[in-house]
Design a protein around this nucleic acid. Structure first.
Lengths: 152, 152
DNA sequence: TGCAATCTATAAGCCTGCTTACTATATGTG
DNA sequence: CACATATAGTAAGCAGGCTTATAGATTGCA
């Protein structure tokens, strides 16, 4: 039964994403795009590698996300004056109201998602998810040598 | 702070998927493919619409998944003798060992994911996620008319 | 100074999810 | 029977993950 945790988590993620996207579409940004914008809100001027690290995605994933955000006019790339390999990413003015609207949508959806859970249950849920998240982040660093004799 | 639930869940889902895929790649199936195979294991001969419903994805998503599974030789499409529009989907013999191997991989990964949580915490986590899942499934049926005066 | 290693960004291509729109078939209604 | 509607499956095309590979720039080291 506990085997279902992976399915359960990905189900919940997919359903939440679907619900969010339904409402957020008219704002012109998706969930992952919003998350990227939020990071930029607090850390404007990061380069794409740094953003990828904060998002915990691969650089190419971040690169293409910035492509779409730039195309939508929500961010802009500026050359790093000290490193001609790098771009620094900045929010545009157009991004501010989008951020505010997405914040409201997410707040309403969150309340719907947690309906029926009391405060201690909500806290426990978030705490446990953070534990799982940390477990999955740590184990991601294990090198293949660890499982030398695993191939039966 | 609680606003982060959506991000947290999708993070956990993505990290678990990444971990699973790393290990499962040599078995020739991904997480969603495994889930589809598991459904077929219990309900062989379903058509694609029924599978999509059990997976809680759109029919086109299921269709393309069956495409890939068929191409990999893990399932086969057989014409429904009673409805010439429909295909019935069956596992091939090749799928059995793949299912067994993925089951083992998932078991090991699950233990890693839940490391540090005791039994009551695990139960509470799964129960709460099921509540959220139900909330997100239900609200997905709400019609737009419900929010007549929501557009500020 | 020069070369190798590293780092930043990106291209190509795959999987999984979605929307929209289409074909083919089945079914209901007049 | 004929037409409208519904259903099963699929194509096209987009977003967001990934891997692998490459170009260009920087940096470390001999």
């Amino acid at each position: 039964m506990t085997e279902s945790l992976g399915f359960l988590v990905s189900d919940v993620a997919r359903l939440m994403r679907r619900r969010f996207d339904e409402r957020a579409r008219k704002s012109g940004a998706t969930g992952p795009q919003w998350r990227t914008l939020k990071i930029l809100e607090r850390h404007e001027g990061l380069n794409q590698g740094q953003i990828a690290e904060l998002l915990e995605v691969e650089p190419i994933t971040c690169c293409r996300m910035i492509d779409r955000l730039e195309e939508a006019g929500l961010v802009e790339r500026r050359r790093d004056p000290a490193d001609r390999r790098a771009w620094r990413i900045y929010l545009t003015e157009k991004a501010r109201p989008v951020l505010a609207e997405l914040h409201d949508i997410a707040g309403a959806m969150l309340e719907a998602a947690l309906n029926g859970l009391d405060a201690p249950q909500r806290d426990a849920l978030i705490a446990s998810l953070n534990v799982v998240r940390a477990n999955m982040t740590q184990t991601a660093d294990i090198k293949p040598e660890t499982k030398e004799a695993a191939n039966g």
